[in-house]
Amino acid sequence: MRMRKLRRLLEEEERINGLSKSRAFLTLARKKNPATPELWLAAIRAELRHGNNKEADSLLAKALQECPTSGILWAAAIEMVPRAQRKSKSSDAIKRCDHDPHVIAAVAKLFWHDRKVDKARSWFNRAASLAPDIGDFRALYYKSELQHGNADTQRDVLKRCIAAEPKHGERWQATSKAVENSHQPTDAILRRVVLALGVEENPML
């Protein structure tokens, strides 16, 4: 099941029938599709949306037991732990899946938040190289350069994004497939995704 379609179904389910129905839907989906990281992540995010952090943590622990090498789950683990624990959690993630672009991007964000500009740039570049078609990584990379880079580094990230013509990524697809953006060029989509990035991606807040 595609993640974008799943998110839409879950949001509709939550809006109409509430979290309990959404939980039941996801539990059934996981039974029918074991070891599917996207379904675990959807369940974790549903709990987080409702402020159920302990339940989200419990689900994440179970998810990593069932899918121990899932990059998207390890990336979520890095972001969900308290800031003081993120370095340790990122080390665990790298040991499990050191070539996964989601983990690489999550580590890049840690360096960005700590204003370690050169290291952040290196890791964002690695994530973009590993998964050139995921626009979310390029948007994070571009935003970090807008904050800490210069005209040359910003232009380089923008130029490479245009050349890659990314089509995937949660935020990228949500933006590019919106009716008002249907005919926008890649550079315009990139800038709109940057604007749409949440507070958690902004190390200045």
Rank of each mutant, 00 (worst) to 15 (best):
A108S: 12
I104H: 06
V107W: 05
I94E: 09
W112C: 12
S90I: 01
C97E: 10
M80L: 12
L110V: 04
A93Q: 01
F111L: 07
D92Y: 11
A105I: 11
D98Q: 07
I104M: 13
D98S: 08
A106M: 02
I94F: 06
P82Q: 14
A84T: 12
S90C: 13
A108Y: 09
M80D: 03
R96G: 00
V103K: 03
L110N: 07
R83C: 03
S88D: 14
M80A: 10
P101S: 09
K109S: 12
I104S: 08
H113C: 03
C97W: 04
R86Q: 15
A93I: 03
P82I: 10
Q85A: 13
W112M: 11
P101Y: 05
D114K: 06
K95R: 10
S88G: 05
R96Y: 01
K95P: 00
W112T: 08
I94M: 09
A106H: 04
V107K: 11
L110F: 04
D92A: 10
K87A: 14
K109Q: 15
S88L: 11
I94N: 02
R86H: 02
I94S: 03
L110G: 05
M80G: 00
A105F: 07
S88I: 10
P101R: 06
A105Y: 08
C97D: 05
V103Q: 04
S88M: 09
A84F: 13
A84D: 15
V81E: 09
K87T: 15
H99I: 09
H102T: 10
S91V: 11
K87E: 14
S91I: 10
S91W: 05
V81P: 03
H113R: 12
D92R: 10
I94L: 11
K109R: 15
A84V: 14
A105Q: 07
K109T: 06
I94W: 12
P82Y: 09
D100T: 08
K89D: 02
P82T: 13
D92M: 12
K87P: 01
W112P: 00
R86P: 01
D100H: 07
K89A: 08
K95L: 08
Q85L: 11
I104K: 09
S90L: 02
R96L: 00
D98N: 12
K89C: 06
R83A: 14
D114P: 00
D100E: 12
